[in-house]
Design a binder for these strands. Sequence first.
RNA 1: GGGCGUUUAGCUCAGUUGGUUAGAGCAUCUGCCUUACAAGCAGAGGGUCUGCGGUUCGAGUCCGUAAACGCCCACCA
Length: 832
Amino acid sequence: MLDKKYNHHECEVHYENWLKNGYFECGKNKGKSFTIVIPPPNVTGKLHLGHALDTALQDVIIRFKRMQGFDTLWLPGMDHAAIATEIKVVEKLKEQGINKHDLGREKFLEQAFLWKDEYALNIREQWAKLGLSLDYRHERFTLDENLSKAVKTVFVKLYEEGLIYQGERIINWDPLQQTALSTEEVIYKDVESYFYHIKYPIVGSDKYLDVATTRPETMFGDTAVAVNPKDKRYQDLIGKKVILPIVNKEIPIIGDVHADPKKGTGCVKITPAHDPNDFEVGLRHNLEKIIVINKDGTMNENALQYQNMDRFACREKLVKDLEEMGYLLKKEPLVHSVGHSERSGVMIEPYLSKQWFVKMRPLADKVLENQKNKDTKVNFVPKRFEKIMNHWMEITYDWCISRQLWWGHRLPVWYKGDEIYVGMEEPKEDGWVQDEDVLDTWFSSALWPFATLGWPDISELYQKYFPTDVLVTGYDIIPFWVNRMTFQSLHFTNQRPFKYCLIHGLIRDKQGRKFSKSLGNGVDPMDVIDKYGADALRWYLTTSTTLGTDIRYDEEKVASTWNFINKIWNASRFVIMNLDNEAVNSDLTVSDKWILTRYEETIKNVTKFMERFEFQNVGSILYQFIWEDFCDSYIEMAKFSLDKKATLNTLQEVLNGILKMLHPFMPYVTETIYQELNHTKDSIMVSDYPVYDKKKIFNDSLEEVNNLLEFVSKIRTFKQENQIPKNYQINIDAKEKDLIIKMLKCQDNLVENNLEGKIITVKDLKAVIYYEKHESPKDLERKEKEREQLIASIKKRESLLSNQNFLNKAPKELIDNEKSKLEEEKRRLETY
RNA sequence: GGGCGUUUAGCUCAGUUGGUUAGAGCAUCUGCCUUACAAGCAGAGGGUCUGCGGUUCGAGUCCGUAAACGCCCACCA
């Protein structure tokens, strides 16, 4: 027997058992395959609410499909997360007084793997707490041998196809981590700064150019000043020279369209080694590229007396010096947006550097082409997110994939003098040195959906479970991940990586702010689980909003979900308590038929919305059906036929169905109740999902009980509003009179009286209530308000029904409905 | 600069392809310890659906436009 109150701790005991029985394993069901690969969490820390949402959604889908008989595989795994993890490990070592470079690459990687093992353990523990039905036999890590093989295969192949190349370009440099980054890893933030106007004297003249810049410290690398060839102010200066202040070097004034006459003063200093646009200008005009900043963000020898100063300190000192020397014309305050490293937070330095790139255009075009084919495209849910991917594919440019880090996939590239070798294995001959760099972490995650299934080997797993069916992730990583999986998959497997891509929103705090350490508004899902249970958290997260929109986390709602579960718990207690009653064989009562009909309708709708991934709708349908129909209406009516086998069977059948439909959302409590209800050790998670059965629809009973419930409710409202005493007199004329009397807890005790009766009707149900009238002014006021509303409604309907256009164009059903409604209202008006 | 999203009850959110009186939870008010559940039951109140214009017999829903808030992308000497 169940305890009096729901206790989530006592329900969260099934995970070991599910695991032990192999229920999570693929290959158990005979049906079609259904695959989800988990977005691998970074091994950098604890899972947050976003992970809980993301994985709960996947578990809901996979448990549903499993119960429907699909051969489901939900593949778990984790991401080494190159830079993110390396930062953490470096920090940890620093606390111990150890410097990464002193330790050396090999020892550092040992430490990183220890870190990974520790965090992987944590993550698995949290997955278990969430109740996720992952097939751990196939768990993968992005640095696993088979994934490394996939990475190398892809790198080598793309290189051979000319789609990976090495080049010297301006890249985004993180001076703290001292690595290159991709454009996606740069976040632009508004920064308060100055627009410095510097005097560049013109050679052979007493005039000067007013050159405006936000980055004066890069002036040591200036190799020209550009003006627009069409700019009348400066046209005649093209070809002349200016003197670079402090450096005292002559540099040319060039004409280039890059200089925008409308911006600043119309004169731009050209620093080809420190600005992507200037780099292009430099190429056009064959300018020298002078690097003036070191990899750590300090100034190098080209900065003369400023050498070794930090770039910001140099700026400050330099501006001061320029001012003293009379070169600073103006210093305008300016707010402009500046790139920052997504991971380390420091300002990005555009930096000339030799890196490896993926040539994106041909790969992106393939995606754009494929998205036109409705049979092979990636279907986004909600649809609008497809635009984000497509837009990215349209404007994308080459992807910088080399990182100056240690933690990650090392580039399969070897050098010997000027020779380059790219291949799966190290060249046999002596003298080859492998490239020190590792790949962007997203390079390996881009292969995740197929590499985890064994690719490049055409394994059994790959053949059976690829392409995957659904990928679930947040909109924030579409550019990083979804896009890249899509083009790599199309290029290497000729298939989309997943048929559906479910995009959910981010979880924010109650005020709509992002969770962040600095705000201290973080919520640990494990604390929530401890307080309210995994079932409550999962239900709340998956049913409380529509996909694609952000969720404002609200603990009160989790608490209210706990109440819902407690309600289910108690209803189940009631059913279980009565199941062994001595009961007689009987036909179904009208209320049995009613709930069975509602139950079938619910199965139909829930299944429909589950298949469309509209969990919000599933949630409200189940909530309403369980709380209102099953608990408040049916159980209350069933209390009067607990001696009938038909009712007991109905209670059990419907409750079983409810548990099954809830199970994907609330695995623990449904398992506990299911086993108790059916006196079994069998698991609900491998039971069959309810299937809609037309034959169990009783439309007459549905209508009859709907009317009855409305009738009872009307009488209750009337009683309450008129403060009718308990021993009131009522006369009921209805088919299910006994049931109604019991529900109203009244007696049909009409005796002679001279009171005026109040008639209440719903269809053919009729009641007359006799009571002492004592209308207060407030009552009269309300009555008058109701009367006015009724008149207004009648007026509206009459005008509608006299509108010839409406009568011609509206569907007949609606017109008839309006007519009968009007008549009813007119009748009601007479009673006022 | 380009694009997207949001705007509905005090709060948080639903609202399918336009069609009865726009829904839910929480909060509020009234009455109930009715033996599954007081974390509950039975009722009630609360919305000119951001503004304006249009299409339509009919608009929260479609179109146009304005505003507020948020996000993405690009640019930013």
